[in-house]
């Protein structure tokens, strides 16, 4: 682990030295990509790792930055990538609207822009590599309709409000469940800010108010789902808890009979495909506007397979 961190830092330093020191005249044949990630979560770290690995394999330089959950930092990150004159930028926007201006700036500088995992409202980007958030929500909603009948009560744990995942995943649950089956009621909803501790705390409170009335808790990521599950188990209730992301922890929980469902979003594929697309754009190739990496449903039937796949990544 440590070695890789050191490696990444070394690459960063070397790249920075290369960009600032040599200018771009001498070794123009090496493509330099810029990667601006929004935050540190398990999922996004996987995307980052896959992107870095893919870049190494393809023999291109990559400058990796992280906004640490702060929109302003990320805007600055993008600015500095533009200033450094990278050949293409891969952007994982923290916020749909907040980075709209950055998209303009990148395009104004004539740099190809790939958005990964999340996309901005400003659609001037060249390609979006990722999975449709709405589909993730729909996967949860469909699972509920199929396994729990046409009526019941659902509680939703949101991610950070305004995040494209929060909006899209809710939209998916709404379209596939709430709009489709009038028997399903949205009993309560609250933001757990993607955090396990918050998922736990909020679910504890919900159980107090609604107790057995709750049939399903749909969490917008696995961390919150695991927190919710803990509260449910401590209260000794039978409530189906659903997550999204398929982290190893969550898949293990599915195997153990804890979570009923998690949704596999192929983080590795997002990271590596984003790099492939970026290199392709630099070389003049064209792609459809949305480059979809499909969502996959993880339940007791197939959990073991996914666990092996995901574990090999860490």
């Amino acid at each position: 682990m440590m070695k890789r961190t050191m490696g990444v830092m070394l690459v960063l330093i070397l790249t920075a030295g290369f960009v600032f020191g040599q200018g771009s005249s001498e070794e123009k044949d090496t493509i330099v990509l810029g990667l601006s990630m929004s935050a540190h979560t398990q999922f996004l770290e996987n995307v980052t790792d896959a992107a870095l690995a893919q870049a190494e394999e393809r023999g291109v330089e990559i400058i990796s930055m992280n906004g640490n959950d702060d929109i302003d930092t990320q805007i600055n990150d993008v600015e500095s990538l533009i200033t450094r004159g990278v050949d293409a930028i891969i952007l994982n926007p923290l916020d749909r609207a907040g980075l709209g201006r950055s998209v303009d700036n990148v395009k104004a500088a004539g740099i190809p822009l790939v958005e990964v995992n999340t996309f901005t409202n400003n659609d001037k980007y060249d390609v979006y590599v990722g999975s449709d958030e709405v589909v993730a929500g729909k996967t949860q909603g469909n699972w509920v309709a199929k396994n729990m009948g046409e009526s019941g009560n659902i509680c939703i744990l949101y991610g950070v409000m305004g995040h494209s995942g929060q909006i899209g995943r809710f939209e998916g649950v709404k379209q596939s469940l709430l709009d489709q089956y009038p028997g399903w009621t949205l009993l309560a909803d609250m933001t757990g800010e993607w955090k396990r501790s918050e998922g736990l705390r909020i679910t504890e409170d919900w159980i107090q108010t609604y107790g057995n009335e709750i049939d399903v808790i749909a969490a917008q990521n696995d961390e919150m789902a695991l927190g919710a599950l803990q509260a449910v188990q401590e209260a000794g209730l039978d409530i189906a808890v659903l997550g999204i992301d398929a982290t190893p922890d969550a898949i293990q929980s599915v195997i153990d009979g804890g979570l009923k469902l998690t949704v596999f979003q192929n983080s590795k594929a997002q990271g590596s495909e984003a790099v492939n697309v970026a290199i392709g754009l630099v070389n003049g190739e064209t792609y459809p506007k949305v480059y979809d990496i499909p969502y996959e449903e993880v339940t007791t039937e197939n959990a073991q397979v996914y666990l092996e796949r995901v574990s090999s990544w860490n």
Binding site: T5, E45, E223, T247, P248
Partner: peptide, 22 residues
Amino acid sequence: AYLLSNGRPIVDLPKRFLIIGQ
């Protein structure tokens, strides 16, 4: 904290540890 954990949550802790919180 990010450096030590490589930015990822550290999971699969021994069951004994959960005594404190649970």
